[in-house]
């Protein structure tokens, strides 16, 4: 399964970025093979509006099934995410990506929306 992280740096030791749309990096982890794919999202700074949907689109292209993040999506990003079926877990904004992964596996992250 592909698990995506919003992070401030390019590897799993990096602190999480609490923001979704304007996250610095997106990291995708295949938890079966351990393969990692990193996307530099910093160019989003040049986007004044609509950052959320653009970043979600990248998540879709990367093939994310689960997203671990901090604050959760804004209105526009949530609207796109609803169409994608990506599960979102929030509350990992103060962790590193590795810690967020552990928290997710232990069921310590809150699922956004739904039940």
């Amino acid at each position: 399964m592909n698990i995506a992280f919003t992070t401030q740096g390019p590897d799993l030791d990096s602190p999480m970025d609490p923001r979704l749309g304007r996250t610095r990096y997106l990291i995708l982890l295949d938890d079966e093979t351990g393969d990692i794919q990193t996307v530099d999202n910093t160019a989003i700074d040049d986007v004044s509006h609509g950052a959320g949907p653009r970043t979600v689109q990248k998540l879709v292209e990367m093939g994310a099934a689960v997203l671990l993040t901090g604050n959760g999506p804004g209105g526009n990003a949530a609207e796109v995410l609803e169409q994608t079926g990506i599960e979102i877990y929030v509350g990992a904004g103060e962790m590193t990506a590795k810690e967020a992964l552990e928290a997710y596996k232990n069921g310590a992250l809150k699922k956004h929306g739904g039940a």
Partner: peptide, 15 residues
């Protein structure tokens, strides 16, 4: 220029 149109694999979303 305003990210108001998002072209997804199977649909286009307008903001």
């Amino acid at each position: 220029n305003f990210n108001a149109v998002l072209s997804m694999a199977d649909k286009v979303m307008i903001f």
